[in-house]
Amino acid sequence: MSIMGPIEKEELMSSDQIARTIRRLAREILDHNRGQHGLALVGIRRRGVPLAERLARAVWEMQAVKVPVGHLDINLYRDDLSTVATQPIVQSSEIDFPLSQKIVVLVDDVLFTGRTVRAAMDALVDYGRPKAIQLCVLIDRGHRELPIQAHFVGKAVETDAVEMVEVRLNEIDCREGVLLVEPAS
Protein backbone atom coordinates (compact mmCIF):
# COMPACT_ATOMS: atom_id res chain seq x y z
CA MET A 1 0.00 0.00 0.00
CA SER A 2 1.46 3.30 -1.01
CA ILE A 3 1.02 6.51 0.95
CA MET A 4 -0.83 9.09 -1.14
CA GLY A 5 0.35 12.68 -1.08
CA PRO A 6 -1.98 15.62 -1.59
CA ILE A 7 -3.73 15.53 -4.98
CA GLU A 8 -3.60 18.60 -7.21
CA LYS A 9 -7.16 19.00 -8.46
CA GLU A 10 -7.16 22.14 -10.51
CA GLU A 11 -5.04 25.11 -11.51
CA LEU A 12 -6.95 28.18 -10.39
CA MET A 13 -4.51 30.72 -11.80
CA SER A 14 -1.54 30.57 -14.11
CA SER A 15 1.53 32.74 -13.89
CA ASP A 16 0.10 35.08 -16.56
CA GLN A 17 -3.24 35.29 -14.81
CA ILE A 18 -1.55 36.22 -11.54
CA ALA A 19 0.33 39.04 -13.31
CA ARG A 20 -2.88 40.35 -14.93
CA THR A 21 -4.79 40.05 -11.65
CA ILE A 22 -2.13 42.08 -9.81
CA ARG A 23 -2.44 44.88 -12.39
CA ARG A 24 -6.25 44.82 -12.13
CA LEU A 25 -6.11 44.90 -8.31
CA ALA A 26 -3.64 47.80 -8.38
CA ARG A 27 -6.03 49.68 -10.69
CA GLU A 28 -8.98 48.96 -8.37
CA ILE A 29 -7.07 50.14 -5.32
CA LEU A 30 -6.17 53.39 -7.09
CA ASP A 31 -9.72 53.95 -8.37
CA HIS A 32 -11.31 53.19 -5.02
CA ASN A 33 -9.00 55.64 -3.24
CA ARG A 34 -9.02 58.32 -5.95
CA GLY A 35 -8.00 61.72 -4.70
CA GLN A 36 -6.86 60.22 -1.41
CA HIS A 37 -3.38 60.83 -0.13
CA GLY A 38 -1.30 58.53 2.02
CA LEU A 39 -1.88 55.10 0.56
CA ALA A 40 0.25 52.30 2.07
CA LEU A 41 0.48 48.57 1.43
CA VAL A 42 1.13 46.08 4.23
CA GLY A 43 1.75 42.46 3.26
CA ILE A 44 0.94 39.68 5.71
CA ARG A 45 3.81 37.19 5.99
CA ARG A 46 4.65 35.20 4.17
CA ARG A 47 3.01 35.36 0.72
CA GLY A 48 1.23 38.66 1.31
CA VAL A 49 4.65 40.33 1.34
CA PRO A 50 5.70 39.64 -2.28
CA LEU A 51 2.12 40.37 -3.39
CA ALA A 52 2.25 43.78 -1.67
CA GLU A 53 5.61 44.46 -3.34
CA ARG A 54 4.15 43.56 -6.74
CA LEU A 55 1.11 45.77 -6.19
CA ALA A 56 3.39 48.67 -5.25
CA ARG A 57 5.38 48.08 -8.45
CA ALA A 58 2.17 48.02 -10.51
CA VAL A 59 0.94 51.27 -8.91
CA TRP A 60 4.31 52.86 -9.72
CA GLU A 61 4.07 51.77 -13.36
CA MET A 62 0.52 53.12 -13.70
CA GLN A 63 0.73 56.43 -11.90
CA ALA A 64 4.36 56.95 -10.91
CA VAL A 65 3.19 57.07 -7.30
CA LYS A 66 5.51 55.54 -4.74
CA VAL A 67 3.51 53.62 -2.15
CA PRO A 68 5.34 52.54 1.02
CA VAL A 69 5.29 48.79 1.72
CA GLY A 70 5.38 47.17 5.15
CA HIS A 71 5.64 43.56 6.31
CA LEU A 72 3.50 42.14 9.08
CA ASP A 73 4.01 38.90 11.02
CA ILE A 74 0.76 38.04 12.79
CA ASN A 75 1.93 35.08 14.88
CA LEU A 76 2.08 37.08 18.13
CA TYR A 77 -1.59 38.03 17.63
CA ARG A 78 -3.03 34.61 16.84
CA ASP A 79 -6.15 33.50 18.73
CA ASP A 80 -5.08 29.85 18.91
CA LEU A 81 -1.72 30.19 20.70
CA SER A 82 -2.97 28.38 23.78
CA THR A 83 -4.16 25.39 21.74
CA VAL A 84 -1.30 24.76 19.30
CA ALA A 85 1.27 22.14 20.24
CA THR A 86 4.37 24.14 19.43
CA GLN A 87 4.78 27.84 19.07
CA PRO A 88 4.78 29.15 15.51
CA ILE A 89 8.07 30.68 14.38
CA VAL A 90 7.90 34.43 14.79
CA GLN A 91 9.40 36.59 12.08
CA SER A 92 9.91 40.30 12.32
CA SER A 93 7.37 42.90 11.33
CA GLU A 94 8.76 45.85 9.42
CA ILE A 95 6.63 48.94 9.12
CA ASP A 96 9.07 51.84 8.91
CA PHE A 97 6.57 54.60 8.16
CA PRO A 98 4.01 56.20 10.50
CA LEU A 99 0.51 54.79 10.05
CA SER A 100 -1.51 57.76 11.24
CA GLN A 101 -3.40 59.46 8.38
CA LYS A 102 -2.55 56.51 6.09
CA ILE A 103 -5.02 54.38 4.18
CA VAL A 104 -3.52 50.96 4.76
CA VAL A 105 -4.30 48.18 2.33
CA LEU A 106 -3.61 44.82 3.98
CA VAL A 107 -2.48 42.26 1.41
CA ASP A 108 -2.67 38.47 1.75
CA ASP A 109 -2.73 35.54 -0.64
CA VAL A 110 -5.84 33.64 0.49
CA LEU A 111 -8.87 34.80 2.48
CA PHE A 112 -10.37 31.80 4.29
CA THR A 113 -11.63 31.88 7.91
CA GLY A 114 -10.80 35.57 8.38
CA ARG A 115 -8.79 34.87 11.52
CA THR A 116 -5.49 35.94 9.99
CA VAL A 117 -7.01 39.26 8.97
CA ARG A 118 -8.45 39.75 12.46
CA ALA A 119 -4.97 39.16 13.90
CA ALA A 120 -3.42 41.47 11.30
CA MET A 121 -5.79 44.32 12.19
CA ASP A 122 -4.92 43.93 15.88
CA ALA A 123 -1.22 43.94 15.01
CA LEU A 124 -1.59 46.98 12.77
CA VAL A 125 -3.31 49.19 15.33
CA ASP A 126 -0.45 48.51 17.77
CA TYR A 127 1.74 50.45 15.32
CA GLY A 128 -0.56 53.45 15.16
CA ARG A 129 -4.02 54.60 14.10
CA PRO A 130 -4.46 54.39 10.35
CA LYS A 131 -7.11 56.57 8.72
CA ALA A 132 -8.61 53.41 7.22
CA ILE A 133 -7.76 49.75 6.72
CA GLN A 134 -8.75 47.98 3.50
CA LEU A 135 -8.19 44.37 2.50
CA CYS A 136 -6.84 42.98 -0.76
CA VAL A 137 -6.51 39.23 -1.41
CA LEU A 138 -5.51 37.20 -4.44
CA ILE A 139 -8.01 34.40 -3.69
CA ASP A 140 -11.23 34.44 -1.65
CA ARG A 141 -12.18 30.83 -0.97
CA GLY A 142 -15.13 31.40 1.40
CA HIS A 143 -15.81 29.59 4.72
CA ARG A 144 -15.51 32.70 6.89
CA GLU A 145 -15.60 32.26 10.66
CA LEU A 146 -15.54 36.00 11.36
CA PRO A 147 -17.44 38.96 9.88
CA ILE A 148 -14.66 40.02 7.49
CA GLN A 149 -14.86 40.85 3.78
CA ALA A 150 -12.20 41.95 1.32
CA HIS A 151 -12.40 45.22 -0.61
CA PHE A 152 -10.33 43.88 -3.50
CA VAL A 153 -10.48 40.23 -4.60
CA GLY A 154 -8.36 38.71 -7.36
CA LYS A 155 -10.58 35.66 -7.77
CA ALA A 156 -13.40 34.21 -5.72
CA VAL A 157 -13.36 30.43 -5.70
CA GLU A 158 -15.93 27.98 -4.37
CA THR A 159 -14.11 25.38 -2.30
CA ASP A 160 -14.78 22.51 0.00
CA ALA A 161 -13.60 23.21 3.58
CA VAL A 162 -11.11 20.33 3.53
CA GLU A 163 -9.54 21.42 0.24
CA MET A 164 -6.48 23.65 0.29
CA VAL A 165 -5.62 26.58 -1.91
CA GLU A 166 -1.89 26.77 -2.57
CA VAL A 167 -0.50 30.02 -3.85
CA ARG A 168 3.00 29.71 -5.23
CA LEU A 169 5.05 32.81 -5.89
CA ASN A 170 8.50 32.98 -7.46
CA GLU A 171 9.92 35.07 -4.59
CA ILE A 172 9.21 32.28 -2.07
CA ASP A 173 8.45 29.08 -3.94
CA CYS A 174 10.57 29.50 -7.08
CA ARG A 175 7.46 28.80 -9.19
CA GLU A 176 4.26 30.62 -9.96
CA GLY A 177 0.60 29.61 -9.90
CA VAL A 178 -2.45 28.96 -7.76
CA LEU A 179 -3.60 25.38 -7.20
CA LEU A 180 -6.64 23.75 -5.63
CA VAL A 181 -5.33 20.78 -3.67
CA GLU A 182 -7.20 17.94 -2.00
CA PRO A 183 -5.45 16.42 1.01
CA ALA A 184 -4.69 12.70 0.88
CA SER A 185 -7.57 10.71 2.36
Binding site: D80, L81, V84, A85, T86, F112, M164
Partner: peptide
Protein backbone atom coordinates in the same frame (compact mmCIF):
# COMPACT_ATOMS: atom_id res chain seq x y z
CA UNK B 1 9.05 32.74 27.68
CA UNK B 2 7.25 32.57 24.34
CA UNK B 3 8.86 29.27 23.36
CA UNK B 4 8.51 27.39 26.66
CA UNK B 5 5.00 28.60 27.45
CA UNK B 6 3.12 27.59 24.29
CA UNK B 7 0.26 25.23 24.90
CA UNK B 8 0.97 21.59 24.25
CA UNK B 9 -2.58 20.29 24.39
CA UNK B 10 -3.25 19.75 20.70
CA UNK B 11 -1.18 19.06 17.61
CA UNK B 12 0.02 22.10 15.74
CA UNK B 13 -2.20 23.49 13.04
CA UNK B 14 -1.23 26.32 10.79
CA UNK B 15 -3.50 29.33 10.99
CA UNK B 16 -4.98 29.59 7.53
CA UNK B 17 -6.93 32.27 5.77
Amino acid sequence: LYLVIGGREHPSRALEG
